[in-house]
Nucleic acid binder design. Structure first.
Lengths: 146, 146
DNA sequence: TTTGATTAGTTGTTTAACTAACTATATGCC
DNA sequence: GGCATATAGTTAGTTAAACAACTAATCAAA
């Protein structure tokens, strides 16, 4: 086995796991320490609803890069936590519009602050132009695989 | 809510999810298409065993950034597939040395080739120096959060 | 207008991550 | 030797991802 392949393997682990899971774990810990009973996955759904409410489940799939069953279950749990409500669309009865509850809205400010902190922790000492370039590379990777 | 926070949110989603899950999904598909009954997570454990056999479970935890229960279950499944075997250490009976079976060894060449293909697909058109810089940024992120 | 295809969402099943609580072995100190 | 502590690994319970198979509503074309 040529050594080259293991080098690529290292690169693979960088891209697929290490940094991204570290960020998610850090944010999750901040949530837990703040007494917020919320998973990162649930937060990532709320995030897109804070930008624009009343999205359909399909729109949430596209926004969060998840498939439909994943969104169904995440919304099940978010409804149990009374953070969102499914509201049947009047125009098209197949569609659920997902609405934030008061409680769901209230979480925005605090959790976004914790997310910002997490990113600041993560990116400390990384120059802005390198952040931009890294973002470009990751976007390119995503586009390449679309 | 200042718009700045949503910009950071976008960055967050770039780093934590999009590209990395796209790569993993692509490789998983290659495995499935090749008729390999193997998850990416299982493969990532085998990967470290191919580099060096007879690692303890704790060493696999460190190598793969997983906790002990995760490794326990992954090894349960890898044992079911008869790709590895737990062998009690003679020096310290708390320790399991994880050994590749013949079948486990045989998977290396094919799957590493598919992983290399996946990385080539993912990184097509990205100059090597940008790949290196991206890798450095992700390493820095990981170190910042350690 | 009815039939066929498409779209939106749900359910079932398997695999995996994370936390907490647990057992068993080893180590260090008195 | 005996006790406290640390280390290696397992088990239990919840949440989530991926895939396949499913229901219900809509749309389009004959």
């Amino acid at each position: 086995m040529p050594n080259n392949q293991f080098k690529k393997g290292e690169l693979y682990s960088f891209i697929t796991g290490k940094a991204s899971t570290a960020i998610a774990r850090r944010l999750q810990k901040k949530f837990n320490n703040a007494g917020l009973n919320l998973t990162i996955e649930q937060w990532s759904v709320l995030y897109h609803l804070w930008k624009e409410d009343r999205k359909s489940q399909q729109e949430l799939c596209n926004a969060t890069y998840r498939d439909k069953p994943s969104i169904t279950r995440l919304l099940d749990n978010l409804e149990k936590l009374q953070l969102v409500k499914r509201v049947a669309s009047e125009d098209d009865r197949r569609i659920n519009k997902i609405c934030l509850t008061k409680q769901g809205q209230k979480l925005q400010e605090h959790t976004m602050k914790l997310a910002e902190e997490t990113l600041n922790d993560a990116l400390e000492g990384v120059p802005p132009d390198q952040i931009d370039l890294c973002k470009e590379v990751l976007q390119k990777v995503y586009d390449n695989l679309k």
